[in-house]
Simulated scan of single mutants.
Amino acid sequence: MPVDRLLPTDEAHDLIARTRAFADRELAPRVTECELEARYPTGLFAALGRAGLSGLPYPTRYGGGGQPYEVYLQVLEELAGRWVGAAGAVDVHTLACLPTARHGTDAQREQWLPGMLDGTLTGGYARAEPHAGADPSAITCRAERTRAGYVLLGTQVGVAHGGRAHFQTVFARTGPGRPDVSCLLAPGADEYLYFGAPEESTALRAMPTTGAYWDGVHLEPERLIGRRNEGLRIAFEVLDAGRLGVAACATGLAQAALEIAVDFAAGREHRLLAERLGAVESARAIYLDAARRRDAGLSYSRQASVAEPIAVAAAVEATGEALRVLGPVADTDEFPVARYAREAATLHRRLAPTAPATGPPKDCRDGSGLAAVGG
């Protein structure tokens, strides 16, 4: 029972069909082995680029797909139905590209975006700092100004693609005040950048999430994205978009588990499975409403903050119900429902503490904006 999607164009329908074929061909055969062995899927982003599935929500001028966010998220959902870890990795990379794509100068976009969007480069960023939770305004990682640019100092946790990314989008404090945070494009490897061991997890083991310690990494002035001391708004923009990505991944995971359960039950358990399907449809409707608001240039922070926990809860409930229906055959290659349940539980544990849904503090929303430097 594939999802009957309401999409804005024929091109979007073709894109979803291509995504399903890619997921069946490239993801489904690799997921079990990679997750069991905690083996990073080398070549995944290059394969996405060849399939035309990389950089979807960014301009075609720089090699992106030129798709609205509502289409990109449904592509993400389809990928998550085969491998939620890979879908999450795609979303992390997409988020790492966001500041450069939306707030970089023309020169910065021309220099970096083509490699970011065609699958050549993999991007990462940190979910949080040890003390900060989901609130970007609590950042203490510092970018100290020097004559040659900036020096990065500090510790971060939840660094996606830790040790594997070619570049890291970093938010660091560049002034003494609460809003004095800037966005910088940092290298993924440096002699003064150290990564910790991957986070322990019973699922999503193939995509490393680590801690990072910036011990004096030097950055050129042109690696500042947007204006100095005005990066907090970008950080909240990434946070909101990230919530939608998690919601789409969780929804795809829930959908996949219920499709297996419905086929296996063959008419039995109809009422309970129908209730779970209703919850998944609701989660999809909520995240798509937020995405369409984003595409229209409207505020969507509140909707995104609601969509994420609702979709993750739907995934936990759907995979739990599928486990009950399948019973002893739930942990096989043919019926990977037990893996789905572990992945849903991991998404639930990773839910960041709820940050204010109203965006950055008032002193970052005074109308000064975050105009691109020279853009």
Rank of each mutant, 00 (worst) to 15 (best):
D4A: 14
E11Q: 14
A12P: 09
H13P: 10
D14C: 09
R18C: 04
A21W: 09
E26W: 04
A28T: 14
P29F: 03
C34T: 12
A38H: 08
A38M: 04
L48T: 11
G49V: 03
R50F: 07
G55C: 02
L56V: 07
L56E: 06
Y69F: 13
Y69W: 15
V75D: 01
L76E: 07
E77S: 15
R82C: 13
A89F: 06
V92P: 02
T105N: 03
A107F: 00
Q108V: 09
L113Q: 01
P114F: 00
M116E: 10
L121D: 11
L121Y: 04
L121M: 10
T122S: 05
G123I: 01
E129W: 10
S137D: 12
T140P: 05
R142C: 00
L153F: 11
G154L: 02
G158M: 01
V159D: 02
A165E: 04
H166Y: 06
T169Y: 03
V170T: 09
A172L: 02
R178W: 07
P179M: 08
G196Y: 10
L204Q: 07
A212E: 03
V217D: 00
N229E: 13
E230R: 15
L232Y: 04
I234R: 00
V238P: 03
A241H: 15
V246A: 12
E259G: 14
A266K: 15
G267E: 11
H270V: 13
L277C: 14
L277A: 07
A283E: 03
I286T: 15
D295K: 05
A296N: 07
R302W: 13
S305A: 15
A313S: 13
A322M: 07
R324F: 13
D331S: 10
F335R: 09
P336T: 07
V337E: 08
A338H: 14
H348F: 13
H348G: 12
R350I: 13
L351Y: 05
P353E: 00
P353V: 06
T354H: 12
A355H: 03
A357H: 12
T358S: 14
G359P: 06
G359Y: 02
P361H: 02
K362I: 14
D366N: 15
L370M: 11
